[in-house]
Design a protein around this nucleic acid. Structure first.
Lengths: 196, 196, 196, 196
DNA sequence: TATGAATGAGGATTCATTCAT
DNA sequence: AATGAATGAATCCTCATTCAT
C-alpha cells in the first residue's frame, strides 16, 4: 500500500517533469499532467498541495541530490582540491543530465519559486556553497588555487556557465556533444582556479 | 507630435520593464503597467500589439545594442584579441547593468519568447557569436588563445556565467560589488582562454 | 449520473434559448445565461465549447427535428401531394411554435452561424429541400401542382413567409392569432401551388 | 460646401452599407467603415451620432423610398387592384435589388434597431401597410380579391417571402435568376389573392 | 471640420482548486 | 483514495466613443 502510494505520486511527479520541461511551468495545465500520469486531475491534489508544490518537489529533490554529492566530494580525504573541483563539475553535469528534463525544469523555472519566497534551494544552495567554499579554501591553503579569487563570484560564474550549457544541450541534445562540453568546462574551471 | 508619441511608448515600455523586473512577466498585469506609466490600459494597446510584444520590444532592443557593440569591438584594429575579449566582457556588463531592470528581464524572461518562436535574439545572437568567434580565431591564429577550446562552448559558458552574476546582482545590488565581479569575470575569461 | 449531466446541459441550453430570444445573441452575456440556469458561469464551458456553440446546438436541434418530420411526411404513402404540403406547413408552425423562444432564436440568429461557416443547417436544409422537392414533383406528376413553379423559389418564398409570421407572433403573441395565421398560410400555399 | 458635406456623409454611409452587408453589423468596426470611406474614424461621428445611427440611416432611407413608391402605386387611378399589387411586388424587388448590399443590410440587421425601440420603420411600415391594405380593400370591394384573406397576415407573409428570396440572391447572385424569381413571386401573390 | 490618440466599460474564456460522491 | 463536475477569481484584449488639437 505504501509502495503503491509512492508509485502514484512518482508517476504524477514524472509527468509534471515531462510537461514542465516541454512546455514550461505556466504553459502546463494540471489536467495535462494528470492525463500524462493517467490519473484524474483531482488526484494530483491528493499527493501535492498545488501546482507550485509539484515544482518545489522536483527542484528541491535535484538540489538535495546535488548538495549531498558535493558534500561527499568535499569530505573525501583521498582527493586534492583540484580533483575535488573537477569531480564537482562532473557531479553537476551528472545530476542535471541524468534526467535531462528535470534539469531543464530546474534551470528554467527556478525563479518561479524564488519569487514566492519558497526557495527550497536557499538552504541547499548554501550547503552547496559551503562545500565548494570549503574546498576552495583548502585549495588556497595548500597553495593550489589563486587566493585573489572570490569563491562566491566564482561559484556563481561556474554555475551559470554550466547551466547555460546544460540548458542548450537539453533543448537540443544533438547540438552539443555533452562529453566534450563537460571536459571543456572542467578545463575552464581548472584554468581559472589555478595560480597564474 | 512624433516626439510625443515616442515618449508615451517609451513611458509604457519603461513601466513594463520596471514591472516585469519586479514581478516577472506572468505576474505582471497590463493594468499595472498602464498604471505605472500613468495611462489607461487601453493605451498600452495603441503602442504595443499585446503583452508579449512589450517583452519582445525590450529584449530585442538590448540584444541589438549588445550585438552592435560586440561587432564594433571585433572590428577594432587597434586591439589585440585578448583586449577585445576583455572589452567584450565589459560590454556585456555595461549593457546589462546600464538598466539593471532591463537586464534582469532579459535574463529572466528570455525563454518566454523562445517558446513562441518569436526569438528576436536568434539573429542577434548569431551575430554576437560571429563577432566572438572571429575574435577567437584571430587570437588562435596569432598564438594568443588555446586552440583546443571550442569557441561555441566557451561563449555559452561565459555568457551563462555573466548572466548568473548579473542576475544575482540585479536582484540584490548590495550583495555583490559589480565592479569587482566584472574584474573577476574578466580574469576567469582570460585564464580560460590563454594558453596553459 | 449520465442523466444528471444531461439535465444540467439542458438547463443551460434552455436558459440560453430564453436569453437569446429575449435579448438577442450579442446582447446576452454568458453570465446571464449561467445565472438563469442557476450555475456558475464556468459551468457553461463544461458543457459547451463557447457562446457560439450554444447557438449552434439549439439551432441544429430544431433543424434536425424539422428535417426529420418533413421527411416522414414526404414518405407517407397515405397522403396526396397537397395534403403533404399542408402537413408540411403545419409541421413548420408546430416546430417553431412548440418553443416559441427557440423558434425566435433560430429565425433571428441563424445568420450568425452562417457567417462563420458553421451552418449546421446546410445539411439539414438540403434535406428539407429534398423532402419538399420530392413531394412537389410527385404533385406535378400526378397533376395536382402547377408545373411552371420552380420548387426552389417556392420553398424559399414560403419559408420566408412563415418565418416572418412566426417571428411577429413570437415577439408579441397577442398581436396574431397563430391558428388563423396557420390556416391562412396553408391557404396561400395551396392557392399558389394548385393549377390555375 | 453644403454639397461637399453631403458627399462625405454619403461616402461614409456607402462604406457602412458595404461593410455591414459583407460582414454584418456587429462584425464591422467603425475603423473599417472610416478606412473604406477614406476618412479618419473620428470623422464618422461628425456626420452620424453613433454606429447604430448609421444603420438607422440606411434602413430608414430604404423604407422611406419603398413606402413612398407603394403609396404612389396605391393612389394610381389608372391601375386595377391586381395590377397595383403586382407593381408593388415589383417595387419591393426594385428597391431591394437596386443596391443589393443595402437590401441585404436591411433584411439582415433590421432586428438590431427593433430591439432598441429605434424602429425607424415603424412609421414607414405602417404607411406601407396602409398603402397595401387600401389596395386590398379596394380589390375586395371590386370583387377581385378573396375577402377571407387577412391583409395583415398576407402582407407579412409576402414580405417575408420576398425578403428570403432577395436575401438568398444578394448573398449569392448567381444562385438565383432574379427576374425569374420576381415573376414567380408575382404569380404566387396573384394566385393567393384572387378568388378561388 | 477633421483628426487620431486616449479612454475604459465590457465580456469571453481559462484553469487551478475544491468537494460531494 | 479517486474522481471529475462545479466553481469563480483572474485578466487579457476589443472597440465604440470622446475630445484636445
Amino acid at each position: 500500500m505504501r509502495l503503491k502510494k509512492d508509485q502514484k505520486a512518482q508517476a504524477i511527479l514524472q509527468a509534471a517533469i515531462k510537461m514542465f520541461a516541454e512546455k514550461g511551468y505556466h504553459q502546463t495545465k494540471i489536467t495535462e499532467i494528470a492525463d500524462t500520469a493517467n490519473v484524474a486531475h483531482g488526484t494530483v491534489y491528493t499527493y501535492f498541495k498545488n501546482k507550485e508544490d509539484l515544482l518545489y518537489n522536483m527542484i528541491s529533490k535535484l538540489w538535495q541530490e546535488l548538495s549531498l554529492t558535493l558534500e561527499e566530494i568535499s569530505n573525501n580525504a583521498n582527493l586534492d582540491p583540484l580533483q575535488k573541483v573537477q569531480k564537482m563539475v562532473d557531479a553537476v553535469f551528472d545530476v542535471f543530465t541524468s534526467d535531462s528534463r528535470l534539469g531543464l525544469v530546474v534551470i528554467k523555472e527556478h525563479n518561479q519559486l524564488r519569487k514566492k519566497g519558497m526557495d527550497a534551494s536557499v538552504g541547499e544552495y548554501e550547503h552547496l556553497l559551503n562545500s565548494f567554499s570549503h574546498t576552495f579554501e583548502q585549495g588556497v591553503a595548500e597553495g593550489f588555487f589563486d587566493p585573489t579569487i572570490d569563491p562566491d563570484t566564482f561559484l556563481h560564474f561556474v554555475f551559470g556557465g554550466l547551466s547555460q550549457l546544460i540548458h542548450r544541450w537539453a533543448n537540443d541534445p544533438r547540438s552539443l556533444n555533452i562529453q566534450k562540453v563537460k571536459e571543456q568546462s572542467k578545463y575552464f574551471v581548472q584554468q581559472s582556479l589555478i595560480k597564474g
